[in-house]
């Protein structure tokens, strides 16, 4: 009898005094008949919190499309002028434009929701208190701003 709970275990004759136990009694038959609910395929629509989570996850797919588009552009550039011009013209396609705008929105969603979540990952203890969530999030926005400025001026310098 060394399982965590007896509820599942079989009777045994173990133990120091078990030697004198006259064999096992037949195990009683369980009357359990648990009902096992299943998770619906659409569980992520069930409440606001799940929907926000689903949006955060989906946003990465859209951002992924944008990255794919950029990779295609790089390949085209490598292939030569004609190929590159085809890719540039592709960028003005209404469908592509829509997707690009969507990608901008979704990358904002992705960034903000992840920044919002960072206090759970980064917890800075100061004495007997933790640095407030606000400052952890603010720090991320600050870093983003610094990074954006550096990139901007670097590109501007070119």
């Amino acid at each position: 009898m060394s399982t965590s709970t007896g509820a599942r275990q079989e009777p045994t004759g173990a133990g120091r005094t078990g030697a004198r136990s006259p064999g096992r009694m037949p195990a009683a038959e369980t009357h359990r008949r648990p009902y096992r609910p299943t998770t619906k395929r659409t569980w992520f629509l069930a409440n606001r919190e799940y929907r926000a989570y689903a949006l955060r996850e989906v946003s990465s797919v859209v951002v992924g499309f944008f990255v794919f588009n950029l990779v295609v552009g790089l390949v085209c550039l490598h292939r030569g002028l004609e190929s590159w011009q085809w890719w540039v013209s592709l960028q003005t396609n209404p469908l592509n434009l829509t997707l690009t705008v969507l990608a901008v929105v979704m990358s904002l969603v992705h960034a903000t929701t992840w920044f919002q979540a960072t206090p759970k990952i980064i917890r800075i203890q100061r004495g007997t208190r933790y640095v407030a969530d606000f400052w952890v999030v603010a720090q991320h926005y600050l870093l983003l701003a610094v990074f954006a400025a550096v990139v901007y001026f670097w590109l501007g310098g070119l």
Binding site: P11, T12, G13, G15, R16, T17, G18, P26, A28
Partner: peptide, 8 residues
């Protein structure tokens, strides 16, 4: 009836 034997 199910019977279990234990020391304590």
């Amino acid at each position: 009836m199910q019977t279990l034997r234990t020391d304590v």
